[in-house]
Design a protein around this nucleic acid. Structure first.
Lengths: 248, 248
DNA sequence: CCGGATTTGTTTTGTCATACATTATGACAA
DNA sequence: TTGTCATAATGTATGACAAAACAAATCCGG
């Protein structure tokens, strides 16, 4: 329990948060179970109670646990965790593999991003559009793979922000984690030109205020990205997306 | 600054969290600005530094602020807040009006819920389906309006949970807040029978494992719900949804 | 003698106060 | 410009006490 992460963090309470949070997400403490009393955790980790309590407050804020005098601090049902929180996400990634994460992320993107693009087409300000365009230009100018991925991610994030609906924003945050974990997701080689064209198509639709076009171009873009992913990672992703113009 | 909320909470640091968090979401502290030093907040609210620090940790955990020695505690860009966090949501609701909240929530639901239903059709376990069915039955058996809304919400939440993709779950959480704030959103009078039929249709599609049917029935259900909302609240909602079978 | 309400006790979190450590920032000096 | 140092803020530790919740023991009426 409370295995030490190899990541060195600035202050002590962040480290404790990391260890306890990791243990919970990893399932070592189980839903509904109570963690050890604060004083015991202090001894286990050789830190003061101040630090332990602040870590507990952080985790409480993320919805992982809840405390009551006498009865102790219990792990809440996973359905109530802030699953999109960067830390929770990171702890998940330390457990489950990248493929599974990417599959789930793609399920979410397939659900949300077309609608987000449509919304952006209606709601985006000049600055929002400039930001999306900057992403495109960045992909264009990218020389190494890493620059390309960074610009790509910035492009997609900008679309979520351009919806002017803050409930879409946490999804954009998730790309940061993806970024840090893997640079191998970029469209490689011959696929890059096509990706660029498709990104421009989305940009143009949003800039023109054409919601339907924005949605459809995004559907195409995501479908091709999924194909690339399958090719790279060698695994089928259960998106259950309405494929753009097929049987149905 | 730090206006006292009329909500009485159990422990002191929750109250401080409420006041400071509210001030930030309300925009009284502005992005990038630093809040007063901890000791000053202590004096302002007449509490110990322990309490203030734990409140700050909570808010840090929700992505609202970040602290550094000497330079102080600054408000982070709203794009990095955990906008789906129940507390953040509540603070938003104390500021912006319910109509605006409902409109944005509906934009999100329109984007996500059809895909979530489709995913659920593929992924749901027997327990998941039983849970969805329980929502339906609850709506059926409901006598007063309040019971109907509770069951309705449980139904939709169950669909998100049935996706077996935890990234969809925080959206289901949002319904709790809606619930607490307003019971006037239910389908009223003559609309209730139709709502029931449409909910059953979604349930049947999911139970049958038919992803396409689940998606389409959900689109219809949401479109009609939106119509009801417009009728009740008297306001047009910008969903930019692909209307089911119309011009386009 | 029994059953239910009440009291008391104990454990754990919640709050306070104080002292000191650490770290960034900005001013001053080389 | 660069380096050093003072300073002001957050970070950490410790010890004490308050409050709450659960459980056991106790009291009292039947």
């Amino acid at each position: 329990m409370f295995q030490t992460s190899n990541v060195l963090r600035r202050n002590v309470h962040s480290q404790v948060t990391d260890r306890v949070g990791g243990s919970i997400v990893r399932g070592e403490i189980g839903i509904g179970e109570t963690l050890p009393p604060e004083m015991q955790i202090c001894e286990m980790m050789d830190v003061s109670r101040t630090v332990v309590r602040e870590a507990i407050r952080t985790l409480t804020g993320k919805g992982l646990i809840e405390s009551r005098p006498k009865s102790g601090t219990r792990v809440r049902p996973a359905e109530q965790w802030n699953q999109l929180d960067p830390d929770v996400l990171r702890w998940h990634l330390e457990t489950s593999d990248m493929d599974q994460y990417l599959a789930k992320l793609f399920q979410l993107r397939t659900a949300v991003e077309p609608a987000a693009a449509a919304l952006a087409a209606v709601q985006a300000s000049e600055e929002d559009i400039a930001r999306i365009r900057a992403g495109c230009d960045g992909m264009d100018a990218a020389e190494i793979n890493e620059e390309f991925v960074v610009a790509d991610i910035a492009f997609h994030q900008a679309i979520y922000f351009a919806t002017r609906n803050e409930f879409f924003w946490p999804i954009a945050q998730m790309f940061e984690i993806t970024l840090r974990q893997s640079f191998a997701i970029a469209a490689t080689g011959s696929h890059r030109p096509r990706a660029l064209i498709e990104h421009r198509a989305v940009l143009d639709a949003i800039a023109a205020g054409d919601a339907d076009a924005a949605r459809e171009t995004t559907v195409v873009l995501l479908a091709h990205s999924a194909d690339d992913l399958v090719r790279i990672r060698g695994r089928e992703f259960e998106t259950t997306a309405p494929r753009p113009a097929r049987k149905r």
